[in-house]
Amino acid sequence: MQPDAPFPNASYYNGGPRRDPPLSQAGFIALSVVMALFTGPAIMLNAAVIIVTLVHKQLRRPLNYALVNMAVADLGTAVTGGLLSVVNNAWGSFALGRTGCVMEGFAVALFGITSLCTVAVIAVERMFVVCKPLGPFSFQLKHAAGGVALSWFWSLIWNLPPLFGWGRYELEGVGTSCAPDWHSRDPKNVSYILCYFALCFAIPFAIILVSYTRLLWTLHQVSKMACVEGGAAAKAEMKVARMVVLMVLTFLVSWLPYASLALLIVAKPDVEIPPLVGTVPVYLAKCSTAYNPIIYIYLNKQFRGYAVPFLSCGRTSRTDDEESELQTTVESSNNKVYPP
């Protein structure tokens, strides 16, 4: 079937026509290979997390629901964005037409922002469990379900407007993928992009930063009070601290270049950005679907103990349930009295 309104060789970029393809055929093939190297593991790792959770009831705990939700969102991004990027780059253009562009842009944005919001939910969950800002707190299924539902709802309400005229989805980078249109100078589009940036990036990042700062401070105080225990608490603190720093750095590397580029284009619409330069932030954000499960899930002993045998086609021989690094730290911290 002939695609409607095709975009041969990414013939539009930054709102203006281009006579020549932005990359050579070899360049498009190289991008396709790079994306395939990340998309394949992303699909495999996130699918493994979902499957082992369905198979092993020991993993169906409230604190793990957000991790599984992120795996679902990342899997969706890898399938709708990663696989299509591999195919379109190999083809050398976006071959699905205007309708396909809108559908891909909406799907990738929906899954991507849901994953981003889930990272913020995980940060809040861990802060409440460890820091207990409201006193004794038991994280239950209703809290986990609420966080998961909120991440999808927040993403949906801010990705639907372009389908109804406030903002729009358009080609980005070298023209082989689609996203919210950062280039249009139309006031309605600019207002949407500014709201989108503030509510779908700035707010999640602020939540992550505040939650993990509070978490690290609490663990530091516990470590100082537990120095008589031979440094066990200090060792646990350092493990969690390294994980938290890695999480924040991953968030910044994945999303800050993309958000910064979008904000730059909105602030200075006349800025000249080479297509390849505009594509790099897009790929960094999409590649987070591969290393998110490694950082957030496979550094968790509880998931790793089931997922690794599954991925290696081995049998699980576990007789009891291991606790994650964070849960171990929480247990060692529950008997401490935190300073005000």
Rank of each mutant, 00 (worst) to 15 (best):
D4V: 02
N9V: 00
S11F: 03
N14D: 10
G16S: 08
G16H: 06
R19N: 08
D20S: 08
G27F: 05
A30W: 04
S32V: 09
S32N: 06
V33Y: 03
V34Y: 08
V34F: 13
A36M: 13
P41D: 04
A42T: 08
A42I: 09
I43S: 07
L45Y: 12
A47H: 07
A48F: 06
I50T: 06
H56Q: 14
Q58I: 08
L59R: 12
R61H: 12
P62G: 10
L63C: 11
V68D: 09
V68E: 10
N69S: 13
A71I: 10
A71P: 10
A73E: 01
D74T: 10
G76L: 09
T77P: 00
A78G: 11
L83A: 14
L84N: 11
W91S: 10
L96I: 04
R98F: 09
C101Y: 06
V102T: 14
V102M: 11
M103A: 15
M103C: 10
M103S: 05
G105Q: 11
F106D: 00
L110A: 07
F111I: 03
G112D: 04
T114F: 09
T118D: 05
A120L: 06
A123D: 02
V124G: 00
R126V: 04
R126W: 11
F128Q: 05
V129W: 00
V129E: 04
V130C: 06
C131D: 10
S138D: 12
L141A: 09
A144D: 09
A144E: 08
G146C: 12
L150I: 08
S151Q: 05
F153G: 12
S155W: 04
L160V: 15
G167I: 08
E172G: 07
E172H: 04
G173R: 07
T176L: 11
P180E: 08
R185N: 12
D186I: 05
P187T: 11
K188Y: 03
N189K: 01
N189Q: 11
Y192C: 06
Y192V: 09
C195E: 03
Y196T: 02
A202Y: 00
I203D: 00
P204D: 04
L209I: 00
W217T: 02
K224D: 01
A226V: 00
V228G: 00
V228W: 07
A232L: 10
K235F: 07
A236V: 00
E237I: 00
M238G: 02
K239Y: 03
A241C: 11
R242Y: 09
M243Q: 13
V245T: 04
M247F: 03
L249C: 11
L261G: 02
E272Y: 07
E272A: 11
I273E: 01
P275D: 05
T279Y: 09
V282R: 06
V282Y: 09
Y283H: 13
K286W: 13
A290N: 01
A290G: 02
N292D: 13
P293F: 05
I297L: 02
I297G: 01
Y298N: 12
K301L: 10
R304T: 11
Y306T: 04
A307L: 14
V308H: 05
F310Y: 14
S312Y: 08
T319H: 14
D320F: 13
E323D: 14
E325N: 13
E325W: 12
L326Y: 15
T328P: 01
T329R: 09
E331K: 15
E331G: 08
S332H: 14
N335T: 14
V337M: 13
Y338R: 15
